[in-house]
Design a protein around this nucleic acid. Structure first.
Lengths: 252, 252
DNA sequence: CCGTCCCGTTCTCAAAGTGAGAACGGGACG
DNA sequence: CGTCCCGTTCTCACTTTGAGAACGGGACGG
């Protein structure tokens, strides 16, 4: 049947699909989940019972929610990332210095994960912990630019260049051209490519192995950050923050 | 066979046991996990492959780590807690005012979870996200004191009063006596009952339903916080912070 | 106050997937 | 070059999962 992939465990996948549906729905009941995921009620119920007993699902009456056991594992996973450990303070300082939303993104299996996001006031399309496309964000492009070429190719092939806004880069050649300039300048921009009215500057943190570990970025709505602010004031700080994290990573 | 519990999913439990082992071991390989958990190598391998593909496990060469997908779900779960949303700023201010380690604990299935922990300098036995026994921590006792009586009884029965240090309360009657005084004073103490050389003050945040939602606590090593500081200076701030969160929760 | 509807829970059974064990393959080390 | 160790693959028997139908209880409305 599944002639393609390596051996897998179907049941676990189902359980995690259920949890992810709970997140998307902000909590749900057995029947709702069963319909949405096209699984029998009895199966959903069995999974939820198990997950509940283990603390991965919380129950309030007849609706289930994502449980706090994920917090334990998630914070643990983050704390163990070398980039996060060495970079967290620098990112915090950058946020204070600029007054804008500030992020630390790491590469994770073809996507980018915002392991730290400090809001800058105003609305904000970014959630800490979220997985996002690399090609549509400044930090993501910074990461892509320094990613191992084979890896980059396979990622772009597998995931493609989905359009998030009108301005998202959906053309492979144009992306490659931009990545070349990112490599030269150690600087990437996002001008409403991820979310309308939202822009971003990023600089890569290249790990000791020469492959990008992460990227630092500062972002804001168009009116909070004019093009000039973005290019002149903030840019330098972003680059120097990224570079200093990179240096600290090297000397460990 | 399983005449006791409700229907469950064994495979999911196995997967999550593997992830928890990865946390305890700070990463591990297939064989190591198989030995530790007493599962065949092929099974462990299959589970890891699945978890990896879904982003719940990260792979570095031949060792596997807890993955960042947990961070996404965990932070989401936390952000959706009313107590956290309304209390996070107040706790942050409390930390600044006292200069000591400060925590926000919520009740979760018989245990306490530190949803926020701001370190206060110096060593610290608390990890943000961690699940701990209620009876051995100040915040836990604050929560227990106001918990629904039936729930409290069943929790204490199920979990017992495991000894963490010499000073941990392991006697049920003594615990009940202390909880009565916690209810009167809205204040709980922990004097090295959780970790040696570590003490703590806490005050409960009673939810709109009259059942404890959470507790605020301030903690520190014995030398950083003398008994006097603890009782006189910090205590009032802890109580008023908890109370103000409680009020804000009521008016929503 | 009773009937209806909806949802969570339980039960049973067949089909399917999991997991043990053995064998393979490749890299590290001596 | 041989040995050892570890991850990966394969196969098969057995356990477990999951569908479907039936149960039970609470909410709502007539």
């Amino acid at each position: 049947m599944n002639a393609d992939g390596p051996p897998q465990v179907r049941t676990t996948t189902t359980s995690l699909r259920i949890v992810e549906a709970l997140r998307e729905l902000d909590g749900a009941g057995v029947t709702e989940l069963a319909n949405r995921l096209d699984i029998s009620k009895s199966a959903v119920h069995k999974h939820l019972t198990t997950l509940h007993r283990l603390g991965y699902v919380r129950r309030e009456g007849n609706t289930y929610q994502v449980g706090l056991q994920f917090l334990h594992l998630g914070l643990y996973a983050r704390d163990r990332l070398p980039v996060f450990e060495t970079g967290r303070d620098a990112v915090e300082r950058l946020a204070e210095a600029t007054g804008h939303a500030t992020n630390l993104m790491v590469y994770d299996g073809g996507y980018g994960v915002y392991v730290r996001h400090i809001p800058g006031g105003g609305d904000d399309p970014i959630r800490e912990g979220e997985r996002v496309y690399l090609h549509a964000t400044a930090a993501g492009k910074a990461i892509l630019a320094f990613l191992d070429e084979g890896e980059r190719r396979s990622v772009l092939e597998r995931i493609g260049l989905p359009e998030m806004t009108e301005k998202t880069i959906t053309d492979r050649a144009r992306l490659e051209r931009e990545l070349r300039s990112v490599r030269d300048q150690r600087l990437a921009f996002d001008r409403e490519e991820y979310a309308e009215g939202y822009q971003c500057v990023a600089s890569p943190v290249v790990g000791p192995d020469g492959v990008t570990a992460a990227a630092v970025s500062v972002s804001g709505s168009m009116d909070r950050m004019t093009g000039k602010t973005l290019e002149e004031d903030v840019t330098g700080l972003v680059v120097s923050t990224a570079k200093s994290i990179e240096n600290e990573l090297l000397s460990r």
